[in-house]
């Protein structure tokens, strides 16, 4: 609770500072709207924001599920085959060297203006951290435990299922925490490049019409969504790491 209290205190202080700057400098609202004005815009456009936030939330949620499943399966496959790991790791690192944001226009071209291109974008961003973190966990089981398991006559699949995967779940949790932060970024970038719905689209629209207060309202909605997602994923991650 102390942490929450500090968070609220910091947020309150920032809002006060922001409001103070607007008052003192007299900056026009289309450059920097006051927090009060942003709040008013958020309330006035609540249905519009909610509708677009729902689209972004669906994109992020789907991307998290698909990216986590794909990343986890890849990590398990790589951990089961050192040869495949040696073969594929350079390729995986190369894909990370390509700025995924630069692919956004191509993804929009390939997958259209709908939800699919944003989901693919976010999946591409979270796939590597999830794979990498889970793979690390899978390959860091103490040698003594693996030797014991092999002496017991354990099959490779059972060792993977009953020892390596449970041992690596806390690492998967770490990957998921990163994914929860990255996934909304991917979805919003996708929406910026080409979309007819979503918070990224709404922010661009508001910006183009000099509705800076609406843009800020959308931005804060996105930040709050990301924060909530992070809290939820942290809870899942803590559960995975409970032992």
């Amino acid at each position: 609770m102390t942490g929450l209290r500090y968070a609220f205190a910091a947020a309150g202080f920032t809002l006060l500072l922001w409001q103070g700057i607007v008052w003192i400098t007299g900056v026009p609202p289309f450059i920097l709207p006051s927090p009060v004005r942003v709040g008013q815009a958020a309330y006035a456009n609540r249905m519009l924001i909610a509708e677009n936030a729902w689209v972004t939330a669906c994109e992020v949620g789907l991307a998290l599920i698909i990216g986590t499943v794909l990343g986890a399966l890849t990590a398990i496959r790589l951990a089961a085959s050192p040869r495949l790991h040696r073969l594929l790791t350079p390729m995986l690192i190369f894909t990370q060297a390509v700025p995924v944001f630069a692919l956004a226009p191509i993804l929009t071209l390939w997958f259209g203006y709908g939800i699919a291109s944003k989901v693919v974008m976010a999946v591409l961003i979270i796939y590597f951290p999830v794979t990498s973190a889970f793979y690390d966990g899978l390959t860091r089981v103490p040698v003594g435990i693996l030797d014991m398991a092999r002496t017991m006559g354990g099959t490779e699949w059972q060792i993977m299922r009953r020892i390596k995967i449970p041992h690596a779940l806390p690492s998967l949790g770490t990957g998921l925490k990163l994914a929860a932060v990255y996934a909304p970024i991917g979805a919003v970038i996708g929406e910026w490049v080409g979309a007819s719905k979503g918070l990224g689209y709404l922010m661009l629209l508001a910006n183009g019409r000099a509705k800076t207060d609406l843009m800020f309202a959308s931005l804060f909605t996105l930040a709050i969504m990301t924060l909530l997602l992070h809290i939820a994923v942290t809870k899942v991650s803590d559960r995975l790491s409970r032992y």
Binding site: M152, T155, Q158, R162, P166
Partner: peptide, 16 residues
């Protein structure tokens, strides 16, 4: 992550 009992029967589980 396993109970003492489940640890005791680990060998059988690993052999399927």
């Amino acid at each position: 992550w396993l109970s003492v009992l489940e640890n005791t029967v680990l060998g059988a589980r690993l052999r399927g």
